[in-house]
Design a protein around this nucleic acid. Structure first.
Length: 808
DNA sequence: TGGAATTGGCTTTTT
DNA sequence: GCCAATTCCA
């Protein structure tokens, strides 16, 4: 019997500031929660407190950053509210993206969206952008899809429609992006799809322009809480504030020092200027840290103090002082990884930790490989926070593409992906014909396939193959949506195949038909052929649909005939089917769209298991919000942390640099007891070994908190060229021969990088006297940022700049 | 048309 | 060094 829920009982054990935050439920509230200050605890208690005060849970909306965080919050709130009966049920806890997806489905008509839209992931998006570029008769070489994609994404985050974007587009590039953007939007519409950014943009615009919808939702969500507010972008800002326009019951929690998503459009001023926006807002600071040792906190505070864009906040802790931070300098990345692993193992044994107490962070995903090798060699279990990796596999994407087309037959992007997978004799030439036919009569690719017999110039065999595919999809669609009248496209393909056509296709479709026949008739819920059973309406059966597609599409036969031994593809699909079965079990009323949405909006951290008994590897970004007793951050090098892209400072200010510093701060503050920061003197980057420089962030923290472990032989300056034994043969030798010159340049660059150091006084023939502010090694080029006394700050390439050292 | 072989390009972070 | 896209060949 859970204790009765009273406001007092809910607040038990909170500190005065936490209590104040939890008890402020009406009006705007900003909770500035330092790292490890018990924010989640405060938020969950706050929700429970509201319910205890008589606010029904279904009037409460909490928005988190990841699905995992949402899940955790849901669980914690549920256990706090277990004694609250009905009043405690029905709170909405979701991420911005999943919330918007859900609401846009509910208000599809108001949002001017088709009722079953698909959500395109970045890969789909890229394909569509490429097509848009081509459709604008521009070249993919001149307009890099990636660059266009981020330009469009930025525009969407700022709620700029193509028209609005065009108005502001002055330069050549922007003007063309405006055209591409408009075309891209048209293509999305044709595919009945929205991209990630659209979920936010369309919801924001709907709330902004449609008073009825706004009122409905404002009544539904009378209390709104937004976590990780420092990472919200403009669209999210608009959504949040439109939802609270009248009641103003908005609680934003976050920490400006942990804002690490500026590159994705997050706008730090959302949190910095919260009080300007709501002049009567209450602000609560949570400054006491319960997580880390004094030493770790000291390091973190010293580092973050270098930033200018922040709200001053003094973290303190009652925890013990703790051990010094290990500053590890290795000769190369292999030694670095081996040593980190060795020390982790030692710490585990000495201090009685479990593997799941340990985590290793890095700036870029590519750094995980060396670590994996080292961990495998040491036979240590590990997990990588890369849940999306599984979904990125070809066979998985193919399978999901089938499902996506079933859910949304207008999705030509995904249809194109699998129309010839497994091979069905539909190559480029055939497909182009189908495409142009579809374009002419305003049909989706699948619809065009259904009418393949009318397509001029299409080889009979290809036409028959098209028709067959269209029929497969018709059958799957009917099975998945038993209550739906047959779609027109399917009707168009009524004409039965001629005998000849059947015959000529026999070899292509042989396996799949056999497989279909083999399906046991009573194996629920599907029966072969066009018989209609309708289990889906009553019970989610993604698994059944997937099973059926796997067999009938010919994928299974295709994968299984592949050279025996390790049948990785088939195994992965089986894994996918297993996971789908879990979805069915957990979401009995879930639809195909729900499933696809979950899969598409899943993030890396979402897949992490808590007590897996294994070491956790992840990027610094993914580490946000987590904590571990033992932490190592590898690759503490200039160009990595801070990343070279931030150093080169294309944005012209040092916002990027500050964000990198915050990223390091986030990493450091994840550690509870032990922290190791490591760097490698030489590191292989994209197949080239480069000489590295220690991260400037190291020098921004006080020396005395470090315990230096230097494994590099200090005499390698002269002999550095021969450091790496190159076994030169094969393609590598070829490449080496070709790039002999650049190799020579590189050792010169290495030498230069060794010669010039940060802080050094130098003279330039043209710019005069200056001081080196940064040094960065980037491939064959070593760059220096030099602040000149009279000519300002310049970025120079050392090889060409001919700098002279000046002795003070 | 489809598979194999070669080449060029490239990497920051993710909903 | 790795991957995707392109080219080459049966």
């Amino acid at each position: 019997m859970p204790a009765p829920l009273t406001p007092d009982s809910v607040l038990q054990g909170l500190t005065p500031p936490q209590r104040e935050a939890a008890m402020t439920i009406d009006g705007p509230l900003l909770v500035l929660a330092g790292a490890g200050s018990g924010k989640t605890r405060t938020i969950t208690r706050r929700i429970a407190y509201m319910v205890a005060c008589g606010i029904p849970a279904w009037n409460i909306l909490a928005i988190t950053f990841t699905n995992k965080a949402a899940g955790e919050m849901r669980t914690r709130v549920a256990s706090l509210l277990s004694g609250a009966g009905n009043m405690g049920r029905g709170a909405t806890v979701a991420t911005f993206h999943s919330l918007c997806a859900r609401l846009l489905r509910e208000f599809a008509a108001d949002a001017n969206l088709p009722n079953t839209f698909s959500i395109f992931d970045s890969a789909d998006q890229t394909k569509l952008i490429k097509q848009a570029i081509k459709d604008c008769s521009l070249s993919v070489d001149n307009f890099q899809p990636g660059a266009v994609q981020s330009a469009i994404s930025n525009a969407k985050n700022k709620l700029q429609t193509p028209e609005a974007f065009a108005v502001n587009a002055a330069a050549f590039f922007e003007r063309n992006v405006a055209r591409i953007y408009a075309k891209y939007e048209a293509l999305l519409r044709e595919n009945k799809a929205v991209d990630f950014d659209d979920l936010l943009l369309k919801m924001a615009i709907l709330l902004r322009d449609n008073a009825t919808v706004r009122q409905t939702l404002e009544e539904r969500f009378q209390y709104v809480l937004i976590d990780e507010y420092q990472d919200t972008n403009h669209a999210q800002f608009v959504i949040a504030h439109m939802l609270c326009r009248n009641h103003k019951n908005i609680c934003a929690t976050g920490d400006p020092d942990q804002s690490i998503y500026g590159w994705r459009g997050a706008n730090l001023s959302n949190i910095l200027e919260f009080e300007q926006f709501y002049p009567n807002a209450k602000v609560v600071l949570l400054e006491q840290n319960y997580r880390s040792t004094k030493v770790i906190l000291q390091a973190a505070s010293a580092l973050i103090a270098r930033n200018t864009k922040r709200k001053k906040k003094d973290l303190w802790t009652d925890n013990q002082k703790g051990e010094k931070i290990v500053l590890l300098k290795a000769a190369d990345e292999h030694q670095e990884a081996a040593e980190v692993v060795k020390r982790m193992k030692a710490a585990k044994e000495k201090e009685g930790l479990s593997w799941s107490n340990c985590a290793i962070f890095y700036r870029t995903n590519s750094l995980s490989r060396v670590l994996e090798d080292a961990l495998m060699k040491a036979a240590i279990p590990y997990q990588i926070a890369r849940g999306t990796e599984f979904y990125a596999r070809k066979e998985i994407k193919d399978m999901l593409a089938y499902l996506r087309v079933v859910a949304n037959p207008a999705d030509s992007v995904n249809f194109e992906r699998i129309v010839n997978v497994p091979p069905r004799g539909l190559g480029d030439t055939s497909l182009t014909r189908v495409q142009s036919f579809g374009a002419e009569f305003d049909l989706s690719l699948l619809e065009a396939c259904g009418q393949s017999h009318q397509i001029p110039g299409l080889a009979p065999r290809a036409a028959a193959s098209c028709k067959k595919v269209a029929e497969l999809f018709k059958a799957w669609r009917a099975a998945a949506y038993p209550n739906e009248p047959a779609v027109p496209a399917a009707e168009a393909s009524e004409a039965p195949l001629s005998e000849e056509e059947e015959e000529s296709l026999a070899d292509l479709f042989n396996q799949s038909e056999e497989a279909a026949e083999e399906l046991p008739l009573n194996e629920p819920p599907f029966v072969t052929g066009t018989q209609h059973s309708s289990p889906i309406t009553h019970h989610s059966d993604i698994r059944g649909l997937m099973d059926r597609i796997y067999k009938e599409s010919g994928l299974e036969a295709d994968y299984k005939k592949e050279d025996d031994t390790e049948n990785a593809k088939a195994a992965n699909i089986e894994e996918l089917i297993t996971v789908a079965a879990e979805f069915d079990a957990q979401n009995p009323t879930g639809t195909l769209n729900d499933y696809l949405e979950q899969v598409t909006l899943a993030s890396d951290v979402d897949k992490l298991q808590d007590a897996g008994g294994s070491v956790t590897l992840m990027t610094l970004h993914a580490a946000k919000g987590l904590e571990f007793p033992w932490v190592a951050i590898i690759g503490m090098e200039d160009g990595l942390i801070p990343h070279s892209r931030a150093i080169s400072g294309l944005s012209g200010n040092n916002d990027d640099m500050e964000e990198e510093r915050r990223l390091a701060f986030v990493g450091i503050t994840r550690a509870m007891v032990r922290l190791t920061l490591s760097s490698a003197r030489y590191r292989m980057v994209r197949g080239e070994t480069i000489r590295t420089i220690e991260s400037q962030f190291i020098s921004e923290m006080p020396d005395e908190i470090f315990d230096l472990v230097d494994l590099t032989a200090e005499n390698d300056d002269a002999g550095s060229v021969g450091y790496h034994d190159e076994g030169g043969y094969g393609r590598r030798a070829q490449k080496e021969r070709r790039s002999y010159e650049s190799t020579a340049q590189r050792s010169e660059a290495d030498a230069l990088a060794g010669e010039f150091k940060r802080g050094m006084l130098v003279r330039h023939a043209q710019f005069g006297l200056g001081r080196i502010e940064e040094i960065s090694a980037a491939g064959t080029m070593t760059r220096a940022v030099v602040k000149f006394q009279t000519s300002g700050t310049k970025k120079l390439i050392l090889q060409y700049a001919r700098l002279e050292k000046v002795d003070a």
